[in-house]
Design a protein around this nucleic acid. Structure first.
Length: 266
DNA sequence: GCGACAG
DNA sequence: ATCTTGTCGC
């Protein structure tokens, strides 16, 4: 007979194997057809060829119900990169049976989010994102394969991981990052590269706004380099969290709230 | 052994 | 992730 301990550790073994298999397809360098200019300047008589410039950036997030903790709302938004306005949104209500286990977030959240993306692609929607920002880490992860990598590989889409808290790795923790960001030699920089005791580059900690002391954590998801990821995140930050993720978060919460309001009206 | 641990 | 208003400050 298996007790709960051994059965949960055996499913974690399966998860680890799946992460290792998917990781073989992971690309952590720039690999996309569109171009990115710091100014997005396309004035000089260039044709508006589709896919030439980065125009549509997606953001995904999941929010949860207070009434029923297993009920969740997966959300996808797409923003126009130049105006940062939302041009598309979609929601999917689901019941989640997989628990949250640190290091295995993707097995809880990726299926819903990939399905919403697939639906949009199947419909041939012209706003289908050229790049996706994910509420969760990329390679900043115990096995170098967080939620953003998982979604990126499965959906074959360039993705950037955005963490609002640090997942401790190597010798990296909140205190250490605060020390690094507060160090005099880094005082002028708005971000620092996260290199742990293993010498591996995990990602970057960035104070997105002057006012925000609490950093966000950026890492490559799939088909994008850290350098490019940091650049794009910086360009999409009106507040601490970049707009694609922030809008997905706000709208996802709204959707759940309205749903719970209707439930009480009965 | 104990604590830490994205969302 | 989620419960929550006001409040201090640029």
């Amino acid at each position: 007979m298996e007790n709960q301990e051994s059965s949960s550790s055996s499913s974690q073994q399966h998860w680890i194997i799946e992460q290792e298999i998917l990781r073989e397809k992971l690309i952590t360098e720039d690999n996309f057809t569109w171009k990115l200019l710091s100014t997005q300047d396309k004035s000089e008589g260039s044709k508006e060829e589709e896919d030439e410039w980065l125009k549509y950036i997606g953001g995904v997030d999941i929010s949860f119900s207070n009434d029923d903790s297993s009920m969740a709302c997966g959300t996808l938004v797409v923003l126009d990169f130049n105006t940062l306005q939302v041009v598309y949104e979609d929601f999917s209500l689901v019941t989640l049976h997989v628990p949250y286990v640190p290091g295995f977030l993707a097995f809880r959240e990726a299926p819903v989010l990939v399905e919403i993306l697939d639906k949009m692609k199947r419909n041939g929607n012209p706003f289908y994102p050229q790049l996706l920002m994910v509420d969760g880490n990329g390679i900043l992860h115990p096995r170098g394969f967080g939620l953003a990598c998982h979604i990126g590989v499965v959906a074959n889409l360039p993705t950037i991981g955005i963490g609002k808290n640090l997942h401790h790795l190597d010798d990296l923790n909140h205190t250490k990052v605060r020390e690094l960001l507060g160090a005099k030699e880094n005082s002028s920089k708005d971000f620092i590269t996260l290199v742990g005791s293993s010498k591996r580059i995990w990602g970057a900690a960035m104070r997105s706004t002057q006012a925000s002391i609490k950093p966000i954590y950026i890492s490559s998801g799939h088909r994008i380099s850290l350098q490019t990821a940091v650049k794009i995140v910086h360009m999409t930050c009106k507040y601490r969290v970049p707009e694609p993720v922030r809008q997905a978060d706000i709208r996802s919460r709204d959707y759940i709230r309205k749903l719970e309001m209707n439930a009480k009206t009965k």
